[in-house]
Design a binder for these strands. Structure first.
Lengths: 123, 123
DNA sequence: TGTATTGGTTAGGGTTAGCTAACTTATATT
DNA sequence: AATATAAGTTAGCTAACCCTAACCAATACA
């Protein structure tokens, strides 16, 4: 089942935090997203039910294989769209903020077309 | 107050329907958006409270000046983004569908940058 | 060893925005 | 005139997803 923006943001956050730490806790996710602890607890619980997130032996959050695939997909959208907007002259902050919303709403077809275009124009 | 996706879609729908008819009814909006009559009734009521929509003397829906400004803003995003995606090789249907979602989430800055880029590349 | 801090969860609430069922009102048809 | 149809509204439901308050458990430290 396709996730909504909220679920995708949680996966992406775990993915990003995992790049710099192998001990991702609920509170870290809460801080990163600016949400409360209970909101994170609930949301991660749902993602666990869907088999996208798990807890490792030390109680830290990890993405499952399925979760990692989805997280990478969203994260790629984020980086590519951010780069695109910066290439068009948008400031970094705005580019990243816009990418962060649009990444959840762009289809594979359109995203692939954008990637192809950027490759062609050497960016 | 900035509207959310839902409110913007209602304004855009009234705007589009008004181009081909001067008698826009709730049921027409419902058919266009694929929503139920009560959903439209409720949503339009809120937009009336916010001074964005009004009923004319014959009971048909009209945008107020403020509503029309917002509707045009969204509609321009829709047409420009659709054209952009088509230019990138995306099929018309997908391009329009993606534009319809993204139009609500793109900032002025990024949208202006996209418009400038398209003008420069003669599209 | 007792208390403070930190992290996680439970319980309950609020907003947004869809839905169906059922009622009202107006128009149209027989 | 009686009834059928169409449009709009009210009431109440649901789902997603955020919040605070309060509690539990583990660690830390004086």
């Amino acid at each position: 089942m396709a996730l909504q923006e909220s679920g995708e943001m949680y996966l992406e956050t775990i993915y990003v935090l995992s790049q710099t730490s192998n001990a991702v806790r609920g509170i870290d996710i809460a801080d990163h997203l600016g949400y409360s602890k209970p909101s994170v607890s609930r949301a991660i619980g749902l993602l666990k039910d869907e088999g996208l997130v798990k807890k490792d032996d030390n109680g830290y959050y990890k993405l499952t294989e399925a979760g990692e695939i989805m997280a990478k997909r969203i994260y790629e959208r984020h980086t590519v769209l951010t780069t695109l907007f910066i290439n068009l002259g948008v400031d970094e902050k705005t580019a990243s903020e816009d990418a962060c919303r649009i990444e959840h709403y762009i289809s594979d077809k359109t995203f692939d077309a954008i990637k192809a275009h950027m490759k062609q124009h050497g960016a």
